[in-house]
Structures are given as structure tokens and as C-alpha cells.
Design a protein around this nucleic acid. Structure first.
Lengths: 152, 152
DNA sequence: TTACGTGCAAAGGTTTTGCACTAGC
DNA sequence: GCTAGTGCAAAACCTTTGCACGTAA
């Protein structure tokens, strides 16, 4: 469970107001761990509570929270941005994108610190964040494929 | 230099025609190594040769070449797709995205094979491709920042 | 020759913006 | 009470699609 209070503190530090809309959007992300919500999905969830929240407000809030490092923006290959809590401090995780069914799983493990050191030493590039996606075939699709008797 | 003949062979194998438009687009990518061109940028470059090539054709060709694994589609965080030659067989490389100036550098090194093995063993997910981006501050921006006397 | 490819324009989908109104601090 | 935040609608983008015409194989 992510600390909501630290999010509110970040808003304060940025002199950003805590409105009901913003609070709701933050809670939506808190209650959907491991999901990668698009603006429209957030909007739909928001409307289950408040009916008259505009899509523009959702976009503006997502932008704000991304700027405050509360959320992280991710692009899979479906032409829209998706967001999730930025859990960098807690545990870094990567994404496994199934190119068959489109499902996105998470994978926690980090072998990248050594690589980030090399990037700094060899190129003078100071890494702040990274994003790693694996594209492939998930277990369920692999099993289906096996049952269907496909060769590859 | 990427082998153009192998690209033409891939087109043939896919029963795709080699039109002047497609040939030109392929050559544009060949003559812009290390760049990550958007559809619009490709269109602009195409028009320097043929004036009446439509943007739709560019999109259709990019889609085609991506499907043939000739190009690779990449998303940085600027809301549009970018493309580059798929050099996976030659050397895997990753991207260093400067969050200050937006420049994208490349970095060749691969420590991910071990990680891909772990993903398969632990989760049954068979990795076909991966995409790794590092976000941070490039050397030039770091130097500027230093000169400007900024703390962070 | 003929099915595939193209240019143009229109449509589709996502994200941003202008403006008058509202409400947090 | 100020100013930032909001809802709505329009606009701005990026990308896809329909259709008549052109052309590579």
C-alpha cells in the first residue's frame, strides 16, 4: 500500500491544491496496484464516484502527478499513455508485455545498477530512471499455442 | 551500414512490392543511422526527393516494415511513434534519453540475457524482444548545469 | 492484366487549450 | 478574496481508413 500522506505532502510542497477530484484520482491509483491505467480508464473510474468530472481534469491531474513523481507514465504499444504509481523507491519493477494477448505483467528484479554505473563511466550520462519492457509470449498463450499444435 | 538487399528479400518473401516510395523510405533509414525518425520527419525527408508522396503512404510503409522486422517502433515520451532500423541481430542497443534537452543517445551493451532467462524460469514468459530506456541527464547538460552553478 | 499500392481527403482517437465559472487556501 | 483548479467545448495532433486511380510484377 502506497503512503497517501506522502502524496499529499508532495502536493503541498508544490503549492498544489488538494481538490476532491485530485484526491479521488490518487485513491484510484492506490486501489488499483499493478494496473496500468489510461486516462480514459481513470476517467471512467472517477465517474463512478463523481459524475461530473471532466476528462480534461483527469489529463491535467495525471500530468501534475507525473511531474511530482507520484505517477509514472508508461507507453506500451497501443497508442495511448498509461500511468501507475511510481514505486521506484519501494521496488523497481519491469513489464512483461505479451505480444499475443496484450496482457502486461510485472516483474520485480533489478540487475540494472551495474549497467547504470557503466553508462555513467563510459558516457557521462547520469541515469535518473529507467524503463525496461520485455516483449514476448506469456505462459497462458504459450500453453494455448501448444494445444493448438502450432510449430511456432 | 545495413544490408539493403536483405530488406528487399524480406519484401519479396512477404510478397510485397518494391515501389519507389518504399525504396526511398528504406534508403532514408539507411542514411540516417542512429536517428529515431517520426512519421512526419520521414515524410519531410521523402518529399525532398518526391514531392507528391502522401503521409498515409509513409504510415503504411512504416507499419509494413515494422511488421517485417525491418524497422523497430520506439516510444519516447513525446506522444508520437519513432522508428529506426531493427539492428537486433547486429548489436542490441539501448537508449539514453536526456530529460533536459530531449536528446536520445544510444548505448550498446547487453547484460539482459541472464535476466531474460530468469523471466522464463520464474514466470514462464518467453522473451522475444526487449526495450530498455534510461532517463537522465546527458554529459552536455550536466556540464551546462555545472557552469550555471546550479545545485541540482 | 490484376491485385496491390498510392494520394487525397475525411474520419477516428488521444491529448491539449481557451474561457467562464468555482472553490481551496 | 485571490488565484489555482474545473467543466465544457473546441481545437490540435497523430494515425487510420475509404475510395478512385495508378502501377509493379
Amino acid at each position: 500500500m502506497t503512503q497517501l500522506s506522502s502524496v499529499y505532502r508532495k502536493l503541498e510542497e508544490g503549492a498544489k491544491r488538494l481538490t476532491p477530484q485530485r484526491e479521488l484520482i490518487i485513491k484510484i491509483f492506490a486501489s488499483h496496484p499493478g494496473e496500468h491505467l489510461s486516462a480514459e480508464e481513470v476517467h471512467r473510474l472517477v465517474r463512478e464516484e463523481f459524475n461530473d468530472v471532466g476528462l480534461a481534469t483527469v489529463y491535467r491531474t495525471l500530468e501534475l502527478l507525473t511531474g511530482l513523481d507520484v505517477l509514472q507514465r508508461i507507453h506500451f504499444n497501443d497508442g495511448r499513455s498509461r500511468y501507475e504509481f511510481n514505486q521506484e523507491e519501494v521496488h523497481r519493477h519491469h513489464h512483461l508485455v505479451c505480444t499475443r494477448c496484450g496482457k502486461v505483467e510485472e516483474f520485480s528484479e533489478d540487475l540494472l545498477d551495474a549497467l547504470e554505473d557503466r553508462v555513467l563511466k563510459k558516457r557521462g550520462f547520469r541515469v535518473v530512471d529507467h524503463e525496461l519492457k520485455f516483449f514476448g509470449i506469456c505462459q497462458i498463450c504459450a500453453r494455448k499455442r501448444w494445444q493448438e499444435g502450432e510449430i511456432r
